[in-house]
Every structure is written in C-alpha cells, then in structure tokens.
Design a protein around this nucleic acid. Structure first.
Lengths: 341, 341
DNA sequence: AAAAGCTACGCAAACGGTTTCGTGTTAATA
DNA sequence: TATTAACACGAAACCGTTTGCGTAGCTTTT
C-alpha cells in the first residue's frame, strides 16, 4: 500500500528543503534548472499531488460549495443540482450536497456543519418547514459572516442575498390565458398551502389571468392540498363536485393524479378537460396523454446560481459593500396532449 | 461583517495561551475551573466553532465521502444517493457528489480531484464508457493508496473492493417465470448493449428462465438498444415484427415506451401483452396502466454502501490485510396493471 | 583585491487546530 | 525547612503547503 507522498518525503529523499521542492514544482525562477528537473522527475515518478486540505487551510478557500435542498428524489431539484454541479466543476469547485428533507432542524444542522470552513458558499432552496416557520436566523448567521449565499426557487425576502427565481406569476398567468384562449371557462387551480413562496406567486398569476378576462374567481375551484401527500379522496371529490374545463397544477404529481382520475371516469383529456402542470419533468413527458407543462429549466437555474455564487466567492473587494441581484429564469410552456390534440 | 473567530483570537482576548483555550473548550481536566468557565463563556458568546479544515489536516480525516455516479437526473441513482446521504449524515459525514456523465474522462478527473485529501473514501457506480473501455486504472490507483472504495450496481471484477449489488439475474428469472406462469410464451427482452454488468446478468436470468421451462430462446426476441437513446423506429419495428405475449425491460424508460407504443396500436395491456420493467421508479407508479416493476431498493443500497465504506474508513487495523465483501440487496416485484388487472 | 551583484537555496512564519511534554507556583508531606 | 506532589498553564511540535526574506558562495566589476 503506497501511502500518499508529501513535499517532506520528496525533500528528504532528494536532500533538499521543503521550500525548494515546493518552488521547484511550481517552476519558480528561484530554483536552478538541475534541481527543478530532479524534483519534477521525482514528483512525477511518485505521482505527487498536493494535499487539498493543506492548501485549503493556507488559502482559506476550500473550492467546495455547499448545496442544501429539501429533497433530491425530485426531478426539479435534481436538474438544478445538475446545473450547479456542471458549472461548479468547470470552475474547479466541488459540490457538497445536504438534503434538508423539508425539515427546519436538518437545514440548520447542515448549514452549521458546512459553515465552519467546509465550503466557500451556499446555494439553497428553503425547506417547507422553514418557510412555514418563517425563521431565517441560520441564513442570517451565514450572511453576517460574509459567506456568500444564493437562494433559488423557494426564497425569502427576509434575507438579503443573491436569488434565482422563475417568473412564477407570469407563467401561471400565461398558462391560464392559454386555457381561456381555447374557450375554457371553468378553470381550477390545484396548489399547496400558501406558505410556499412559489405557490403564492402562481396563485396570484392564476387570479390575475381570470380577472383580466373578466372571469369571476370561484374560490371553490382553488384546491389547496397539504404538501407532499396527495389526498386522493379529496381530489376525487374535487373533480366530481366541479364541472371543470381546465386545471392548472403547481406541480406534475397533482396534474398526473388529476388526469388519471378523470380519465378513469371516462372524461376525455383534452377534449373535455385540459391540464397544465408546473415542472416539465419526466412524468409530463411520459404521461398519457403527454402533460402540457411549464418548463422551469432547472439546469439553467442551477448554472446561474452557481455562477452568481462563484462570482461572489472570487470577488475580492471585501471592503466595498456588496450588492445583491435577483435573476429570473424565463419559463417555457411545453405543449402536449393534455391541452391539444 | 463578523469574521470567523479562532482560538488565537480568544487566547489573545483572554490573555491565555492557545493551548489553554483549546483544552478549556474540550473541558480538559488540566485546566482550572475558572479559566474553563471564562473561556467557554467567551466562546459561546462569540459563537466559536473549530475550523473543519484545520481539524481535517491534523486528523488526516476529512469526514467527507466522495460519490461518483454516471447521472443524477435518474431515479435509481437519486435514490441510492439519498440512502448514502442519510446514513453518512447520521455518522457525521458529508457527501461530495460528482457526476461522471457516463464519461470515462470525467470519472477519472473527478476521482483524482477528490483523491488528494478531499475525501476519506469513495462510493461509485461505473460510467458507461468506463465499462465499455474496461479500463479501471483510476480505481486501482485509489485502492492501492489504501483509500476505501465501494462500488454499487455497475461494478467490475477487475477491482478488489466492497460491492453492493442487486440479484439481477434472479430478479430477471423471477419476472420471466411470472410471465410463464400466466401462460405467456412469446417473451421478449429489451436491454442495452451488454458491456453493462447489470444487463448481462439480467439477460442471463431471462435465458435461464426460458430454458428451465423448455422454451427455446428466440434471439430475435432480444432487442439491444444503444444506451440512453431510445430509437423509436427500431422499437416500433420490433413490436410490429413480433407477436409478443410479454416483454421484460431492463429499465423503466424502455418499458414505458413500449407500452405507449403498443397501446397506440390498440393492443391491450395487460390482456394481450404484459410488461415488466426494472427500477421501480416514479414512471412505473404513474404509468397507465401502472408498470409492474422490479424494485431495486436504491435507498437501501445507498445505505448499505455508505455503511460498508464508513466501516472501512474507521477501521484502524491497517496492518492486517483487509477483506472485501459483496452485499446483495434483494429485489421485490411490485405488481401493477401492466401484468394483472 | 575589495566591493557589489547574482544565483540557488534554506529558514521560518503562517493557515487553525490538537496534543505531548515541560515548568512555575502552591500546597502537602517528611 | 527541604522535598515532593498536584495543579494550572504555556511552549512547541505537528498536519502539508506557500512564500517572504535571509544568506552562502560564486562571479563580476572597478
């Protein structure tokens, strides 16, 4: 078992000092040609690589970024992560992922764990519980220490930092307008409890679209499902109690459930009822009929978030006060069989 | 902007030495009661946390584990990652994820990047390209250096290390037997090129099941699709050219594609043709009809892999020679509408 | 031949901790 | 009163690098 070789080993073996070895490997002008060659040859032979941890300590830079997301087994977050990882890697950064599991405590613990020097900055999306509690002290701690933070998708106004969002409201508005253009009138919204920043925005878009077309918003057509658990009976009741033309859902799962439900009753999609969901994930693509959905371009979001973060990390001007940006990623409506034939 | 406080700061502020502070915070017997209280109070007040990087350097332990997977936007890998992350976190480890993107070069680069002290061990699943090239020198490097490595799912016999697998062959055999029990005879297999360890094992199970029931294996019923790109036309041709009873697919996507294709032609699932896929993912659950599939219990796999890795990492007996295990995670057949009504 | 200038290298501090060992002070013992 | 033990703390080494600065030894200049 060859153990990792260090500068010290090389120095001892070659009878020179550690600093000479270090400089020789960096091709420093200070070191003579022969010595450099000797050292470099030896280093290559024994496959010397500098120890990342030591370098991190020296530079006070880990070249790691921390990503804290509520869930990883979830198409949207996965794609965002993909974007982050790709961009970060290109810039020589590694990514440490922690899953908060929608739990406030886990979110806090994970942040604290990573904040003690393990990462140079954070990219995160708030857990459901955090949004419900409205407690952001852990984020405040981080930013107060000058550690860069980028929030995406599930954000809060309480914290000043860079943010990446989609145009939730406009996307919902656009989708509802699409329904209206096609002559649909009884348009429902299936959403989550509204402590979610995104759900709130989407609902606003829904309402605005209806109002703009002089359609009275019927509160009974807005269904709020508890987060992450689809109450099938409630959903069934919702569909039997209401004669609907169209349904906008804040995620894929709600939409697929809805489609399966009505189709089982012989209602035709899209002839009798149309569906649009948020998140253009794998389910939308393979559903039958395909689900028209609002693509959030998670990979792009991740890339932008990573870029913003790394810029902040590598920006040296710690003296001047920092400014924060909010980037909006435009959504795209991907039309499939659930709205058109 | 409060900057991170160090032992040195506390020491200077309190007029004691750094070592005294360090010991006081560890509640060492060596330090007097008063001093300890003073130091601890001060540390708490200023929210002192030891710098992880410094500790890593001292201990030669990072408490990080590296996970290298071919793809993250992929249900199975995501669930495995979930299992790894959960277990690792419970044990105080963080997880650095690198995506090889099915590329040999990226796999190598990622490994080398992390191997220089950034992680204490690796969990990985081989990229497609690596399996095709059959080049495992980068893994050899790692194990030669005594860095623990656990391979899962896509493994190789060329490397001696811990492994976590599913009983691919038996699962395929079981599934095919299921078809046969139901009176199906013309049973097809849709798989990938066979440089994949898993595909090979599944094909073996398929063949064995048929042979055991004295059904001649019809080579034309075995379709090998190039990896990751479903050739729709080839698939369509396959289904029109063969009158099939049942199809076993090595993944969800192939199965869903198949189902959608035959259903579009008016063929009834499961009456005329039954489908079983590997990976009990989100698609299987929401397909119409639901896809019967072989659950690989990714989360369990991840947990087991993480456990094996951390045991190796924390096992001090570096003098004795190490032994390697291969753990098999049993699969479960989840029956849905694609095989039964 | 003395002064100056290079060349090529080593020393030591620094990053932020942990830990072993030594030591000054006081209190207990002979 | 001299000896010793206990106590409470500090100095220093160490983990692996980087880097500013000092300097020995040689060459060049005048």
């Amino acid at each position: 078992m060859r153990t990792k070789i260090t500068l010290k080993h090389i120095a001892k073996e070659l009878g020179v000092s550690i600093s000479t070895v270090s400089k020789a490997l960096k091709n420093s002008e200070e070191i003579g040609r022969e010595t450099k060659e000797k050292v470099q040859a030896f280093a290559k032979l024994y496959n010397y690589r500098p120890n990342n941890v030591a370098i991190s300590l020296k530079n006070k830079r880990t070249k790691n970024i921390g990503v804290i997301i509520p869930d990883i087994v979830h198409y949207f977050f996965t794609t965002v992560f993909r974007g982050i990882e790709q961009y970060a890697n290109k810039q020589g950064y590694n990514v440490i992922v922690c899953v908060s599991d929608e739990s406030f405590d886990k979110e806090v613990i994970n942040m604290e764990m990573l904040a003690n020097g393990s990462v140079d900055g954070f990219i995160m999306s708030l857990s459901a519980e955090t949004q419900k509690k409205n407690d952001f002290n852990h984020l405040k701690e981080i930013t107060d220490q000058g550690i860069p933070l980028v929030l995406f998708d599930r954000v809060t106004n309480e914290i000043e930092c860079d943010k990446v969002l989609i145009n939730d409201k406009e996307a919902a508005l656009f989708a509802v307008n699409k329904f209206i253009e096609n002559g649909r009138k009884k348009i429902a919204l299936i959403t989550t409890e509204d402590y979610f920043s995104v759900s709130k925005a989407r609902e606003a878009g829904y309402r605005e679209a209806l109002s703009a077309s002089n359609i009275q918003v019927d509160e009974s057509l807005i269904m709020k499902l508890p987060f992450m658990e689809v109450d099938k009976d409630a959903l069934k009741a919702f569909f039997t109690n209401n004669r609907l033309d169209a349904v906008l859902c804040v995620n894929e799962i709600f939409a697929i459930h809805g489609m399966n439900l009505v189709q089982k009753k012989g209602v035709k999609v899209p002839e009798d009822i149309a569906f649009i969901g948020f998140t253009d994930g794998i389910l939308s693509k393979y559903a039958n009929p395909g689900l028209t959905s609002i693509a959030q371009h998670g990979e792009k979001m991740g890339e932008v978030a990573a870029k913003m973060l790394i810029e902040k990390i590598e920006d040296e001007k710690e003296d001047e006060e920092v400014t924060y940006r909010t980037e909006i990623i435009e959504t795209t409506l991907i039309e499939r069989g659930s709205t058109i034939n």
